[in-house]
Nucleic acid binder design. Structure first.
Lengths: 114, 114
DNA sequence: GTATTAATTCTATATTGTAGAATAAATAGC
DNA sequence: GCTATTTATTCTACAATATAGAATTAATAC
């Protein structure tokens, strides 16, 4: 059994994207969400590798989407955070928040529903 | 020359500690700052290794402290962030901030002087 | 069935994270 | 000047995360 460690920086971004996307979180949308919002490039390999690792750790769960997209292409694999994943996620952002609180480019909180 | 990448999670915590500590940032205080504020354990090895890497990348600079402590013990090595380090740091926390903005355990901004 | 489209999986390597023992360097007392 | 004590850094090794992009899979449309 692998020891419980802290989440990596990219793992945090991915989990945050999951929360933001809710139902519609799969590879392509997750990637877009991070690229657009974080203004940071994300290669497909990096993303799927990270999602796979998070799933190994049971921090996310996935299910295959309906095999009936309207127009060609492979089925989507949807991801969502598990309760365990959420616990780690909150611990990580709590630590970051505590350290970064008050430093300049730090944004205001505004609370979303997810 | 090594390619410019994103900062890791622990690197971010360390850099944040440097900013917070200002003048008084050396191994022991940095470690305390992270343990106390982030509520996360930090081994000495992890910290110094990370500081050494940040210095290799020119994201921090260090200088040896006065060789005259009042009461025994080796000289301190003080650390501060470089301009280049700051640029990376701000980019990283900007990305994190953008992704995490609005999610629940996210703190308010309050601005400190450093 | 062949082309096209959409998406995931695979494989390999670099970098970051983590731990703790070992070492170093200063002071104090004798 | 030795020896003990204190404070702090350095060393070494290994594990996990980050990153890239080519390859592959699976569905639809002609």
């Amino acid at each position: 059994m692998s020891k419980s460690r802290n989440l990596g920086e990219f793992e945090i971004l991915v989990l945050a994207a999951l929360v933001r996307l809710g139902d519609d979180a799969y590879g392509v949308t997750i990637r877009q969400e991070i690229e657009n919002r974080a203004e940071r490039s994300v290669t497909v390999g990096a993303l799927y590798t990270t999602l796979a690792r998070l799933e190994d750790k049971k921090f996310v769960a996935s299910r295959m989407g309906e095999a009936t997209p309207e127009r060609g292409g492979r089925a989507k694999r949807y991801f969502e955070m598990t309760d365990e994943g959420r616990a780690h996620f909150e611990r990580s952002i709590s630590s970051l928040g505590a350290m970064l609180k008050g430093l300049r480019p730090w944004p205001k909180t505004l609370r979303i529903s997810h």
